[in-house]
Design a binder for these strands. Structure first.
Lengths: 240, 240
DNA sequence: CGTTTATTTGACGCGGTTCAATCAGTGTGG
DNA sequence: CCACACTGATTGAACCGCGTCAAATAAACG
């Protein structure tokens, strides 16, 4: 009898309870019973640093929610020049909605946990649940805003300002509540090479600018990846 | 009696009949009676080249559809450096949905006709007409794709490739059906200064690269604004 | 036709790339 | 445990593409 009750129970699925996307991500748009229906179609996937999650020009069979880790979206020119065009953190949505095939490559920048849902399942659900499409619309609009900010960085900032802007971006992501006067410390989710591809620079230039920032006392860097910013304000002032 | 019938008539509103947005734009998502309701809230606006349509950091009271002309979206840094972050043509949608205030400046790059709808009217309509939100979602996703393509241009292409890419972009917009082997001719919607801000270059560099392209026989330019491309393939080959 | 603004062209310098060498961290096998 | 290789990051030196500054030319406008 306990079991029979469970079937019609509207409790949050176990796996969703501890999921960030449950509230801040797209699943926040779902009512309890919708969430249960949703969870019936999803599967969890764990990926290692460096795994290619979606290849450029590959068919789109599934979408996903980022539950943990960082994902980089990139594009390459025929001759190999590469540019990052997006960075995704939990609880972002991953995948080009309604696209025939992907126009970017998605790669795990760290260990990553995904909550994967097949394309037809999500699209059906979106069609019947306007709130879900609305939530994804909000995320898409936010991504567009970010892309445009980034375009200013790529087109108009100096190498110094680019690197400062990148550090500031990551710092704010590590601690969204941080005040300008605060100090923060965090791990860089990207290698020098990735940072260069993010900023439209070479690794050498990135490295040189980082040493300048270090010498200026704006940041402290240990083990290549750990960054400490004594006061965000100083960093912000260098962002152009 | 004829008049009474008209009231409940489901004919397309007169002003919408010749509008591009009616089919390709957001209004294509509306059924005839919805279109009538929609049209009750809209007003047509005509703007001159150079008019500021939306200011950075201004409250968003209305959205609009571009019926004619070209609009440039831009951002500026405190010290005046400027970067275009979007170009909009008919029948694109104008305005940051659900945003509190604009994060870009929108300026008419040519004479422009807008179909303006107050913010509450559109948002109510979106809430009750999922197809409308879906259509706008599609446009937003397309804009995001374009922004990311552009990021590659800004971050990784040479001045030569940037200018070629820009000309190619405009050429394809002037004649979307054009084949690579075809030739096309069109008017540039932007000044050299705007093109520079679009590509993250200076006007001098833009000018020099245009002369190079002219000397190479890839384009012919008359009156500073009229461009003729004998074969698109040659131009495309220079886009990197 | 004169004035103003937009574009082109030229000369020069600098910021960032390129090429190359060094250094640091990490794993591997003897 | 150390020598070795390997990968990622830093540093240095030389080069060059693009920006800067300045002047000439062309187009737009009254």
């Amino acid at each position: 009898m306990g079991e029979r009750l469970d079937i019609h129970n509207s409790e949050t699925p176990v796996l969703c309870r501890s999921c960030e996307a449950r509230h801040r991500g797209m699943c926040g748009a779902l009512k309890p019973d919708e969430l249960i229906e949703f969870a019936r179609h999803t599967r969890k996937e764990r990926h290692e640093h460096g795994d290619e999650l979606i290849g450029d020009s590959t068919a789109i069979h599934a979408y996903a929610n980022v539950m943990r880790g960082v994902i980089k979206l990139s594009k390459v020119l025929e001759d190999g020049r590469q540019q990052l065009v997006g960075l995704q953190f939990a609880p972002d949505f991953l995948g080009r909605l309604f696209g025939r095939e992907s126009v970017v490559t998605a790669e795990a920048a760290s260990a990553v946990d995904l909550c994967v849902i097949p394309r037809p399942a999500l699209e059906q659900m979106m069609a019947s649940t306007p709130a879900l499409e609305h939530r994804l619309m909000q995320q898409t609009l936010r991504e567009l805003d970010e892309a445009r900010d980034w375009m200013v960085t790529l087109g108009r900032k100096t190498a110094q300002e680019k690197v400062a802007s990148f550090l500031y971006l990551i710092a704010m992501h590590a601690d969204p509540a941080a005040e300008p006067v605060d100090g923060v410390s965090f791990e860089l989710p990207l290698s020098r090479s990735d940072i260069a591809d993010f900023l439209g620079l070479t690794i050498e230039t990135v490295s040189r600018q980082l040493t300048k920032l270090r010498q200026a006392g704006v940041v402290r860097i240990t083990n290549n990846r750990t960054v400490e910013v004594p006061e965000l304000e100083a960093l912000q002032g260098l962002c152009g």
